[in-house]
Design a protein around this nucleic acid. Sequence first.
DNA 1: TTGACGCTGTAACATATGTTACAAAATCAG
DNA 2: CTGATTTTGTAACATATGTTACAGCGTCAA
Lengths: 221, 221
Amino acid sequence: MEVLAKCPLFKGIDNEGISQLLNEIPYQIKKYEKGHMIAQSGEECRSLMIMLKGSVKGEMMDYSGKAIKIEDIEPPKPLAIAFLFGENNSCPVNIVANNSVEILHLPKKSVIELMQMSSHVLKNIMNIISSKTQFLSDKIRFLSFQTIRGKIAHYLLQLTGPVNGEMILTKSQEELANMFGVTRPSLGRALRDLHNENIIEAKGKSVKIINRELLVKQLKK
Amino acid sequence: MEVLAKCPLFKGIDNEGISQLLNEIPYQIKKYEKGHMIAQSGEECRSLMIMLKGSVKGEMMDYSGKAIKIEDIEPPKPLAIAFLFGENNSCPVNIVANNSVEILHLPKKSVIELMQMSSHVLKNIMNIISSKTQFLSDKIRFLSFQTIRGKIAHYLLQLTGPVNGEMILTKSQEELANMFGVTRPSLGRALRDLHNENIIEAKGKSVKIINRELLVKQLKK
DNA sequence: TTGACGCTGTAACATATGTTACAAAATCAG
DNA sequence: CTGATTTTGTAACATATGTTACAGCGTCAA
């Protein structure tokens, strides 16, 4: 259970403290296989889940059933914490196992008890939910403003920081396109255009920023 | 201060209880004129704000400086509560006074004290932040999936519930277009198209759903 | 090696939306 | 009522993105 010490929920508490807390409340550990849908969009959230092993993805459905991936979640991060409470505590995304997964389930009631028992947990949960909100806000900015070129620019600049070196994309064009909410050919075309305009050098999964200044300008469109 | 009793932050606490809580902690009430920017995107959030009078809007800037409105907030709702905590507690939106506004400011420290003093406040804050997260999730769904026709359909269906009557839009096309993140002529064209296809009957601010079934189908595109 | 498979590159075409501009209609202040 | 101002209707055109289809290319397992 050492992974729990790294979980942001228990930040600032030592292993012994965590054990003491968990002794006082009920919890469950469940295992899921790759592809299993752990929570379904619209379902009520009844427990806080903490990733122990493996990785899951959160994805949203549009009305026609097409999914777009929102994010990957890996240990020791908590899941669905922001949807436990609230007027309508239903999960807004599908959560699907990317591979073999182990998850700790804490019933909502236990979570409330934890917050009352430990001011550390209280502050940590506040931090986690707030960060989540900010993540979503960023996502909104990302989705609402930008062209494909802008999204690529945003993504590459964020990835590299201030350095200009070559980088190898770890995601396929298909995955990137999903993240951006665009189609694969459109993404490919945009990459090619940027390449032809000598703003980046893209070949396969390798991408290099040639003209950082012009790339930044893409953000404005 | 009776408005505070209606504030979700103090739900379940009577007037006397609220007075007692507020006696123990420092707070400020500030007034702002129409158009005043109360908080600026990127600024650190230092205090929780509760609307007492008037209304404000939250808007986001894109990189080119164009703003889109995210939401209006009116008394007795709290403001920026979800951005007080978190790793990077900077405000993601501009908050601008729609008219003459009075706002109660509670410093972050006071908020933490409040949560420790009152389990009601604790639960209320959890609920508020969670609802906020869900609001943003919905916004993401709204922004990431839909065409203009889809957004119109979503908006109209949400507005009317299951009834088919005529309704008068309270927002101008300009405002709606901003909400949707599209341009005014494009919105107008989409409305006209839907009208010509006998799905809705739109004339000025009056809109009537003619063929609900076909309108629902627009969501799928 | 070879064939299957998945990823990438790309093209032709369809469509949705933005841009700009202006006229018609509605609203409002005096 | 009247003129000014805001809102709406609309058109022509530019652009971005989606759709569909297929060819090339690497990789991996048999």
